[in-house]
């Protein structure tokens, strides 16, 4: 591959769009989306990095991505629960 890998551009763009979104968006749900964009960009970058090995993709970055996805999704789910709670604080048990 001699030219510029389009996916490298996409990874950099996803990270940059995510950071921009985090800076300019006020709503927490939009900020959470922006953070996930950064995460997706980083995962894409890791997958590109994994392709450098001559004999098959490098499993170490792949494992990092899998771990990262699960952490990102569980943290996002927690963030969404916080957003739901923030939107309707009056009902629901406060135990």
């Amino acid at each position: 591959m001699t030219g510029f890998d389009p996916f490298a551009l996409a990874a950099a763009g996803l990270i940059a769009f995510g950071l921009y979104g985090f800076c300019v968006c006020g709503h927490p749900l939009r900020r959470l989306l922006a953070i996930n964009l950064v995460g997706n960009g980083v995962f894409l970058a890791l997958i590109l990095i994994a392709r450098r090995l001559p004999d098959g993709p490098d499993p170490v970055p792949h494992a990092m991505v899998l771990t990262g996805i699960v952490i990102a999704v569980s943290a996002t789910a927690f963030g969404l629960a916080l957003i739901r709670r923030q939107a309707r604080p009056e009902d629901g048990g406060n135990d």
Binding site: M1, F4, D5, A8, L9, A11, A12, G13, I15, A16, L19, A45, L48, I49, A50, R51, R52, L53, D55, G56, D58, P59, V60, P61
Partner: peptide, 25 residues
């Protein structure tokens, strides 16, 4: 600016050794 630098960095590192990955395989 960050996107440009990141893309260049990712382009730059498209070849190289990966000791841990080689060891894993």
């Amino acid at each position: 600016a960050l996107a440009v630098v990141l893309a260049l960095a990712l382009h730059e590192t498209t070849l190289g050794p990966a000791a841990a990955g080689t060891a894993a395989l």
